[in-house]
């Protein structure tokens, strides 16, 4: 790939951080994180099919502090990818490209994803504590 020594777009080294670029980067980052998280989904389904002993071991694994922290992270990744995915679909329909709207929607997605994460974990805690 070293055909040229010219600086290549998008010039990340001199780029001012802004919600337009961050929301795009985060969409990919959360997508990658969720791809790793599919291992947990597989684990849940396979142990549920296997029997109560295996499923209990799976739940004990999820209850460890490290996994609890990761699960909060995955919850946010899911919420963000979901909200920003809707934003992307609306943009595919040609909506929301005026600069102030684009910036506003970026922040709405960030706040919505945080709100959704808080709601989900509030429900978990209020309904009987972490699993």
């Amino acid at each position: 790939m070293d055909h040229t020594r010219r600086p290549l777009s998008p010039h990340l080294g001199i780029y001012r951080w802004q919600v337009q670029m961050v929301s795009s980067i985060l969409h990919r980052a959360t997508g990658i994180a969720l791809a790793v998280g599919t291992l947990l989904l597989l684990g849940g389904l396979l142990t549920l099919a296997d029997g109560s002993a295996a499923f209990a071991a799976y739940r004990a694994f999820l209850a460890t502090p490290l996994l609890q922290i990761l699960l909060i992270g995955w919850t946010w990744a899911f919420a963000y990818h979901l909200c920003n995915g809707v934003r992307h679909l609306l943009q595919d329909a040609g909506l929301g490209f005026a600069r102030p709207v684009f910036v506003r929607n970026g922040w709405i997605v960030v706040l919505l994803s945080l709100l959704l994460t808080i709601l989900i974990w509030a429900w978990i805690v209020l309904a009987g504590g972490a699993p």
């Binding site: 499923f55 978990i124 009987g128 699993p131």
Partner: peptide
């Protein structure tokens, strides 16, 4: 979008139940 919301709802319902 729809299946993800359904999946999270299902998990939240079953979270504190037994096997």
């Amino acid at each position: 979008f729809f299946l993800g919301l359904w999946f999270v709802a299902l998990v939240l319902m079953l979270l504190h139940g037994d096997y």
